[in-house]
């Protein structure tokens, strides 16, 4: 799987992601093996899907595997997609289900406990100390939902109501979890800075 991995290019679509709009007809084109349409979707959503999967699996390698499987599933089921106005919700559903399957499989094969998963967090590719501290704190301090919301908001640029729709939760809940998560992070990071 790692064969596929390579240094990530700066996402040229990131700025556009601030107003992430996916034309649902793109799935029809993908169903017809239109690779340009698939590339368009991939460039638009890859960062968000990666962030979302990483927030669940807390492991970069596993996250990449699941992201790859997610896009393969999209290609395989694009012709079955029924437009409902929320394409990102479908992509996140596939990513979440695959992530959960991955976790279950990992637990069965390696008898890995949740505590061990935390130990798997390694961001060796991050050279900035501060960034490393923030991303580590995000995985240590926040619970799954807080982490998913903050990462999706930071990386995908989705608006809060879009995140709420994608994760299937009320906007008020999403907002409260977002603010609570950030508050916890700030408090933790302040303590870390004070201890230095």
């Amino acid at each position: 799987m790692m064969v596929l991995s390579m240094a990530k290019q700066k996402n040229p679509y990131y700025k556009k992601n601030k107003n992430l709009i996916i034309d649902e007809t793109v799935f029809l084109k993908i169903a017809e093996d239109d690779m340009s349409a698939f590339e368009q979707l991939y460039n638009l959503t890859e960062s968000s899907v990666y962030a979302f999967v990483l927030s669940i699996l807390q492991n970069h390698d596993d996250a990449l595997d699941v992201v790859q499987d997610t896009y393969l599933k999209i290609r395989g089921a694009a012709h079955l997609y029924v437009p409902m106005g929320k394409p990102m919700a479908w992509i996140f559903t596939i990513a979440r289900n695959l992530s959960i399957s991955k976790l279950r499989l990992k637990r069965q094969l390696e008898n890995v406990q949740m505590d061990d998963i935390e130990n798997n967090i390694s961001f060796s590719y991050i050279d900035n100390h501060e960034d490393k501290l923030v991303i580590n704190s995000t995985f240590k301090i926040l619970n799954d939902q807080e982490r998913q919301i903050i990462m999706l908001h930071a990386i995908s640029g989705l608006a809060h109501h879009e995140i709420a729709d994608s994760l299937g939760m009320p906007l008020s809940t999403e907002l409260s979890k977002y603010h609570r998560g950030l508050k916890k992070l700030r408090k933790h990071l302040s303590k870390q800075e004070m201890s230095k």
Binding site: V3, L4, S5, M6, A7, K8, Q9, K10, N11, Y14, M35, F38, E39, Y42, E46, S47, Y50, A51, L54, H60, L64, V67, Q68, Y71, L72, R75, G76, A77, H79, L80, F123, Y125, I126, D127, N128, E130, D131, K132, V134, I135, T138, I150, M151, H153, A154, I155, L182, L185, R186, L189
Partner: peptide, 28 residues
Amino acid sequence: IEKSIRRSVNKAPSLDFEKLCRMPVEKM
């Protein structure tokens, strides 16, 4: 905080899209 998270994720190694496109897919 959000910028820091964004920087970290963007630095993460990504998939090879060319290989992803070449992988065989069975239509469901």
